[in-house]
Amino acid sequence: MNDYQSVYLALSVILFSIGALGVILRKDAIVVFLCIEIMLGAVNLAFVVFSRANQSAEGLFMVMCIMAVAGAEAAIGLAIFVLLYRKTGTINIDKFNLLKW
């Protein structure tokens, strides 16, 4: 494995960790959402790296898919937040435990 690859992978891991911690710790729904996007970005980065390392386009293909999904997610997710905000006046994640049994 070449050096630059490990650098990129390290960057991917760091980004993923930042995203994961953000998802777990932050209370603002939008920030959580951003953190999810960061995680997705980290994964995309890893895909690109491996794609290059393996000299195959499959990884890139996955990246395109993930970006499309991420876009859709962002659209729906933000819409949900807007609605939630309108209904409850807040988007603090701790206020929403509607999924409880």
């Binding site: 994961a20 998802v23 777990i24 710790l25 959580v32 994640i93 701790d94 929403f96 435990n97 509607l98 999924l99 409880k100 049994w101």
Partner: peptide, 17 residues
């Protein structure tokens, strides 16, 4: 078991991780 289903997304995320 149901106590584990708190409804808070972030707790689910933790257990997932």
């Amino acid at each position: 078991w149901k106590a584990s289903q708190s409804g808070y997304v972030q707790r689910y995320a933790v257990s997932f991780l």
